[in-house]
Amino acid sequence: MGKDSKAKESAKGKSKQSGGGSAAEAPSKGKSKGGGGSGKDELGTCTYVKARHVLCEKQGRINDAYKKLQDGWINNGDKVPPAEFAKVAAEFSECPSGKKGGDLGWFPRGKMAGPFQEVAFSTPVGSTSAPFKSTHGYHFILVEGRKN
């Protein structure tokens, strides 16, 4: 559960979770279906993730959205309720899913590209990732569920 404290630190600057170009390569390193992974909470071995996200073109806007969650929930050590995350997504997200509270539903490993998949499949259930960059812009994710 130390993810939230890391998220606070990385939200102040460039996200450390995106890891530059290496994050896009990470899913191929033993994290495929049946791969080793970390074992904890089946982070490295689950097949499906249910998530919400906020997507913004500009880093400043994603940081503003994340700060809104941080001030209300994350800094207090609380997990962000999906309904609260949905309000922020509806207000800030530039993705069509923003109208649905950022809900991406269940998606399988391999559907999302590079850093997005890496963050979605490595964030613990109930936790919110720090902002990170992908080919589509800047995101942060709330992981709501995980299954095989």
Rank of each mutant, 00 (worst) to 15 (best):
I62M: 12
G101Y: 02
W73G: 00
K12D: 11
G37E: 01
Y48R: 10
W106A: 08
S134N: 06
S127M: 13
P27W: 09
E57A: 11
A65P: 03
S15K: 01
D103T: 13
G105D: 01
K147M: 08
G77F: 09
K111W: 12
M1N: 05
K16C: 10
F107M: 12
G36C: 01
N76T: 10
D4F: 02
E9Y: 08
A89Q: 02
S18P: 11
K3Q: 02
E84L: 06
M112D: 04
T47F: 00
Y48I: 07
S22M: 12
S22C: 09
P82C: 07
E118I: 06
A65F: 04
D78T: 09
Q17S: 14
S18K: 13
T128E: 05
A11S: 13
K79P: 03
I62R: 02
K12S: 14
W73P: 01
S22G: 05
Y48D: 04
K100W: 04
A113V: 15
E9H: 10
T45W: 00
K58F: 15
F121M: 10
A89K: 05
I141W: 03
D4E: 10
Q70I: 05
L55I: 07
G98P: 03
E57I: 14
G114H: 06
I62F: 00
T135G: 08
K58A: 15
Y48E: 08
K68W: 14
I141C: 06
S18M: 12
G126Q: 08
C46P: 01
F85T: 03
K58E: 15
N75W: 07
E9V: 09
G102Q: 04
H53K: 06
V125F: 11
F92C: 07
E25V: 14
K147R: 15
S22Y: 11
G39Y: 02
S32Y: 05
D41Y: 08
G39W: 01
F132G: 03
C46G: 04
P131Q: 01
E42W: 00
A51T: 11
K58P: 12
G35A: 01
G35N: 00
M1R: 05
F116G: 01
F132A: 02
R109M: 06
K3V: 04
S18W: 11
A90W: 09
E118P: 12
K58M: 15
N75L: 09
E84T: 07
A120M: 05
S5K: 11
F121N: 09
G72C: 12
F116A: 03
A89N: 02
P115H: 06
F140I: 00
G34P: 03
P96F: 07
K68A: 13
G34T: 05
K3E: 04
W106S: 07
P124S: 07
G19L: 08
K14A: 15
G30L: 03
E84G: 06
G21T: 12
Q117C: 09
T128V: 13
P96E: 03
G36E: 00
K67W: 08
A90H: 10
Q17D: 12
V49W: 01
S129Q: 08
A26G: 09
G21L: 15
H136I: 04
K8L: 11
R52S: 03
V80Y: 00
S97F: 08
W106V: 04
N76P: 02
S28D: 14
E42P: 06
G37D: 03
G110A: 03
E144K: 13
A51I: 09
